[in-house]
Amino acid sequence: MNYWLVKSEPFKYSWDDFVKEGKSVWDGVRNYQARNNMMAMKKGDWVFFYHSNEGMEVVGLAEVQKEHFPDPTTEDPRWVVVELIPVKKFAKTVTLKTMKADDRLSGLALIKQSRLSVTPVAKAEFDIILSLAE
């Protein structure tokens, strides 16, 4: 199993929007590294849902329901999507400030590559963030 983090601006697409839909095709990604990360996602992988710009916090946990397939929002075959389903909203969000202050998370891709919309999360980092959310 692998672990990931996806970012969304809540005024465009929030955790609550995601829950209302019950699943989401993660589309519109136009960065090769983020695309490659999505291509590495496997069904059953866990995914943190992060609100960017507003809040700047991990708000919930999702699961990869369907592995990558062509992005339906473009005819360009280079771009892909994955299908995610919501698993759990965190009672306590984990802010970027909290993650930056935790030395154990200094290698977190979200911190090192802050503009990337889809990033890998190491198992140890996943466990730390999950424990901070409980």
Rank of each mutant, 00 (worst) to 15 (best):
F126R: 14
S8P: 04
V87L: 13
D27R: 02
I111S: 03
L132K: 11
D17H: 13
E134H: 13
V81N: 05
T119Y: 03
S52M: 10
M41E: 09
E57W: 01
G44P: 02
A133D: 05
L108Y: 04
T74F: 07
D76W: 07
D27N: 14
F18M: 13
N31P: 03
V81F: 05
T93F: 05
V81Y: 07
L61T: 04
W26N: 14
L61G: 14
D103G: 13
E9W: 03
E57N: 03
A34S: 11
D16F: 02
K23D: 08
K7R: 07
A91S: 15
A62L: 03
A124P: 08
Y3L: 02
G60E: 06
F90S: 02
V58K: 02
S106D: 02
A101S: 14
H51A: 01
N37P: 04
V87A: 06
K100G: 04
Q65A: 12
P86W: 01
G55H: 04
T73H: 09
W15H: 07
K23E: 13
W26C: 12
N37R: 10
K66I: 11
P120G: 06
R30C: 08
V118T: 10
L132Q: 08
R104H: 04
W46A: 00
N36Q: 06
F18L: 14
K100V: 15
E75C: 01
K20T: 12
K123A: 14
F18N: 11
W4R: 03
A122S: 14
V81G: 04
G60N: 07
E21Y: 08
D103Q: 11
N31K: 14
